[in-house]
Design a protein around this nucleic acid. Sequence first.
RNA 1: GUCCCGUUCGUCUAGUCAGGCCUAGGACACAGGGUUUUCAUCCCUGCAACAGGGGUUCGAAUCCCCUACGGGACGCCA
Length: 492
Amino acid sequence: MINRQLQSPPIFGKANLDSTKHLNIFLPSMSNVRVRFEPSPTGSTHIGTARTALFNWLYARKTGGTYVLRIADTDKERNSQEALDELLSVLRWLGLDWDEGPEVGGDYGPYFQSQRKSIHMEYLQKLQDTGRAYEKDGAIFFKLEGERYTEYDEYHKAEIEKVRTEPVVVKDSIRGDVTRREERDFVIVRSNGDPGFHFVNVVDDIAMKITHVLRGEDHLSNTSKHLELYKAFGAEPPIYAHMPMILRDPKQGKGKMSKRDKGALIEEYQSRHFLPQAVVNFIALLGWSPKDDQEVLELKDLLERFDLKDLQKGGARFDEKKMSHINFEHMKRLPMATYLPPAKAALLDADLASEENDAYIEKVLTICQEKIDSFENLPGFASYFFTENYPINEKAEGKATGNSDSIQRIQEITPLLDSIELWDASTIDNAFNRLAEEKELKPFAWYPVVRFAVSGTNSGPDFLPMLEVLGKDRVVNRLRKFESKYANLAAK
RNA sequence: GUCCCGUUCGUCUAGUCAGGCCUAGGACACAGGGUUUUCAUCCCUGCAACAGGGGUUCGAAUCCCCUACGGGACGCCA
């Protein structure tokens, strides 16, 4: 086996065949495995869609196979260019590159199903030649083999025609052999002339020589249709793997997660400045787990540990808190060079930072990084570093101004801090210590009120570094402001 | 309604295939304590599960059966 090298940070376009080079791990050389991810560009990207994309990618990379991206755009009514652009950009954001598909081409194109009509029609002809297709109500149906009979159907509330077919067996590497019987002819070409999902799905998988199909469990029942088509074409079906559904947080209701649920859309994580590696990490943990106890994993770690047989069978419930935690773990591990851009973006979004003050922003971030779990919370956590118009936490205000000593504490420390020439944490520390000694108190007597006076809250980064980063001017000015604002406390 | 798939702490899961190493492990969340003389970080402790019933076995979370519950499919959507 030759080790496959892959590249960084996911650069796409023409030359992305090896775009996992940056992961810098050993992968098997080319194998015959061909998997495909077949999204339909009809809206925002669902978390389950992303997981399907991820697991297909992992399986392809793990086996040295080929990852095919095929766009399911057969329903003209619901497709849009924006949705397609969005989809491709989400895949890139997640770091999932494809070997064949839109923008990169490949030997089995076109990769848009809407452009494969001639291929679909060829296969349709085969079915018609063997008497396995017929027209009804303007649409073309696939004809099942077996004895026909009519029966009242409780679900359709009507008398319908059914077929006593032989059962088919789905070879599923997660669930084992699943036996099911298809009992109704189904539409393969709609009356508007466009081929339908089940048909194109199978035809394209045959034509593109797909060997493994990883998809959601919602397709498991459909698979009997697909197997009937494979039989009719005399083609060898792929190995299937039906992944468990991602279910709603019970607080949000029952059933599988829908696009309307909070946390369901990848675009939501992008706009909230979540880290892509955290999103990848979290969705990988839904229905799959590494066998060691390590949970914080990047793409390359997932690749090392991934195995189809370790997929869970039962549905997984989405948990927003765990998602945030995973994001936090990744954020803490980020080097400043990679931490800065998204953090700055979040600050810019909140109109806090300006383009020029990178050095200052970096200082702020250095002391905040270990404390906050998400970039979206950064503005709330650190606004007072950037503006005088920061929010005042009422609870903290109550505490800080709760006793009459507060104003006195501020009056004592302000001149000392004002007289400091070399403004750094240790000098500031000395000032507090000297004062404490003189007053026979602990420095702790000053900390809470000073923190509140300069930040409007009682929580934040480590105290002394915070004062250092804020700078003498801000600190002293805010202490003076505090003095005048709460002057009445002194009178008590 | 019919068919298919599932079911270990509140949640994600390890363990199930090859029964004993499981008084069921980890993580999130929650609760309590502690450190950091502040803090949303960090550390410690606690809480908490084999859906129920039958069977096989010396022994069952693990194998078999039934029940219950959950999920999915049943579209001229994908």
